[in-house]
């Protein structure tokens, strides 16, 4: 090998970078997000849309709600089950999902998602 020392140092840096997730996660207990439903949510049984849609795309719905409410003044939304909902984060969404730290934050912290809901809205006060 020519310039072996430098090349081996370079290779070790490269390997260290690509293997860093293995080292970083080693020995840590895998913690999985566990969103909890409140009693009111359990009673209601269904959300405004299906669970699959809400898991992957609730932010799209919230964006649509925000824009139609703020810009067009449309306040009512017909859910998948035919029920009419009042479009409001604080009065509709947070009525059931009042437990932000045990519901929203579970996945958001796990995936490092930082929604800017609370730039304008007041964060729900959680009563234990």
């Amino acid at each position: 090998m020519y310039d072996g020392g430098k090349i081996i140092v370079g290779l070790l840096i490269c390997l260290g970078f690509f293997l860093s997730p293995f080292f970083y996660n080693a020995g840590k207990a895998a913690k999985v997000p566990n969103p909890q439903l409140t009693e009111i949510a359990k009673e209601a049984q269904t959300c405004v849309m299906s669970k699959d849609y809400m898991t992957t795309s609730h932010f799209t719905l919230l964006d649509k709600w925000r824009n139609t409410v703020v810009r067009d003044g449309e306040r009512y939304f017909k859910g998948e089950n035919g029920k009419i909902y009042y479009k409001s984060l604080q009065m509709t969404c947070l009525k059931c999902h009042a437990n932000k730290s045990k519901f929203c934050d579970q996945c958001h912290n796990y995936m490092d998602v930082n929604p800017y809901c609370w730039d304008c809205h007041i964060e729900p006060k959680e009563s234990e």
């Binding site: 080693a26 895998a30 999985v32 796990y110």
Partner: peptide, 19 residues
């Protein structure tokens, strides 16, 4: 075409932890 990304992360972390 969204997928459940928390499940994706569970998969990738489990790969990195060799379980």
């Amino acid at each position: 075409i969204r997928v459940d990304i928390t499940a994706v992360k569970e998969l990738s972390i489990s790969l990195f932890q060799f379980s």
